[in-house]
Design a protein around this nucleic acid. Structure first.
Length: 146
DNA sequence: CGTGAGCGC
């Protein structure tokens, strides 16, 4: 039952499963309108990055689990399940950073749309994160420890 | 509501 629920929780790009595309192709030739040419889905595509954004995680899926699962597709430099600061529970998504982009791609293709802890997870390239450029910037903004 | 969209301190 998690699959159908996951279909609703699909952030973007769940159409690929339903990409049966029974588009009635013009028997003569395909004449793509200039306006509707790139109007297909020029959505915000995250550029290839070593950082992966994993969503659809279960509430009890922890960082260990995330890393263990994604480590099978490459060397996970860092993995983290985002948890709330006050509640302390998982927000339902996390981040996985691979050593190289190649491994990141494998991790996405290997874990995107797969099950984890009973829930369908979605992996994609994470967005570039704005560094905490504050007035006092001496502390390492990135992951210092393991 | 740990019943579910989204991006991390």
């Amino acid at each position: 039952m998690a699959a159908m629920r996951a279909a609703l929780a699909a952030p973007r790009g769940l159409v690929r499963f339903f990409c049966t595309n029974s588009a009635t192709s013009s028997p003569l030739s395909f004449v793509p309108p200039p306006a509707a040419a790139a109007a297909t889905s020029a959505r915000q595509m995250a550029e290839p990055n070593t950082n992966l954004f994993v969503s659809g995680l279960s509430k009890r899926t922890t960082t260990e689990r995330l890393r263990e699962e994604f480590a099978k597709f490459g060397e996970v430099v860092h993995a983290r399940v985002v948890t709330d600061r006050v509640s302390g529970y998982s927000k339902g998504f996390g981040f996985v950073k691979y050593a190289t982009i190649d491994e990141a791609a494998k991790g996405i293709e290997g874990m995107d749309g797969k099950f984890l802890d009973g829930w369908v997870i979605f992996a994609e390239y994470a967005r570039p994160r704005p560094p905490p450029s504050g007035p006092v910037n001496n502390a390492p903004p990135y992951y210092g420890g393991q």
